[in-house]
Computed example of a mutant assay.
Amino acid sequence: MSKAPRTPRHWFDGAPVPPVARLLEPVYAGALKLRAGLFGLHLLRRKRAPVPVIVVGNLTVGGTGKTPLTIALVKRLRAAGWNPGVASRGYGRHDQATPRWVELQTTPAEGGDEPVLIARRTGVPVRVDRDRVAAARALAAAGCDIVVCDDGLQHYRLRRDLEIEVIDGRRRYGNGRLLPAGPLREPAVRAARCDFRVVNGGSAGFGEWPMTLRPEGAVPLAGGKPLPLTAFGGHRVHAVAGIGNPARFFDMLRDYGIGVVPHAFDDHHAYTAQDLQFGSQLPVLMTEKDAVKCAPFASAWSYSVPIDAELPEAFWVALEARLQLLREPAAGRGSRR
């Protein structure tokens, strides 16, 4: 049975903000200011990894396309001669307290769905740890010369050399309010401190870089030859998405003329075989993030839909120019935030 995501309607759909949420918003804002003050007074200290750190994150709650961008970024770094590793909290894994390496055989229950997906798509070292400072240092000790943090824009203990904000181009910042009155983890003005701002879909504004998520096709979870999405055009399918914004996946399939029977689950949903019992034997198309969890019990007509993040070549040129400065001993990494 599908479970609808629990995104409050007042965040993005124009519904009135509930009174309780309005009352709690200044409490949340006060907590942000307190934490910033503690870092400013050095009562909370930022710590640096021995190698450059790039953080890919967002200001809003929910999915914006961070993981596809992280995968694309890691591939470009390798092509440019870097030896990258990925640090992540590993949200959704069973044992959050224990750091671990995510390897090809690691299950999503052990490593978290996004880290497992990143490890399988890139083949680089992936370390999950609630303490991202420790994760970055472990990656450096393992031979990585640059660390990419999947999420963690608000994890200020770890100093970073570059910040990349990812924005949902359709929903943007919603009603522009802080949690729980709105979807913002930090005020929107925080975006000005990011080195790059990447917009997933919609229209990129001044100083922003457009990103498009392109599907590679449909890969049978039981094995076999991948199919183009056009093969499902004109047919009905069960579409499964347990991501921050399931509608984005459903709309992408509809763009290929596919009749979508949507099944939206909460982000990082822990699937069981019963979740995929829909009462009709239609093809089941799911996001790659969901597929890493559903593969052990998926039917013969279940497919994963991998996607690639595409950005203008000018973005990569600008990023690589910034990264080249980090290779220089005189880059002054100690002055970075």
Rank of each mutant, 00 (worst) to 15 (best):
W11N: 10
D13L: 15
A15M: 06
V17I: 13
V20R: 14
A31Q: 13
R35L: 05
R35Y: 03
H42K: 15
N58G: 05
N58L: 04
G63N: 07
T64D: 05
L73S: 07
G81R: 12
W82Q: 12
N83I: 08
P84D: 04
P99M: 03
E103M: 10
L104T: 09
Q105P: 00
G111Q: 07
D113S: 14
V116Q: 08
G123F: 04
V126M: 11
D131A: 01
V133P: 05
A140E: 02
A140G: 12
V147L: 09
C149K: 12
L158F: 04
R160L: 12
I164D: 01
R172S: 05
G176M: 07
P187K: 11
R197K: 15
W209Q: 10
M211W: 03
K225W: 00
P226F: 10
L229W: 02
T230D: 12
G234W: 03
V237H: 03
F249M: 09
A264N: 04
F278G: 14
P283T: 08
P283Q: 07
V284Q: 06
M286E: 01
E288T: 12
K289M: 09
S299F: 01
A300E: 10
S302H: 15
S304Y: 02
D308N: 15
A318T: 05
R322H: 13
L326H: 11
P329N: 01
G334Y: 02
S335E: 13
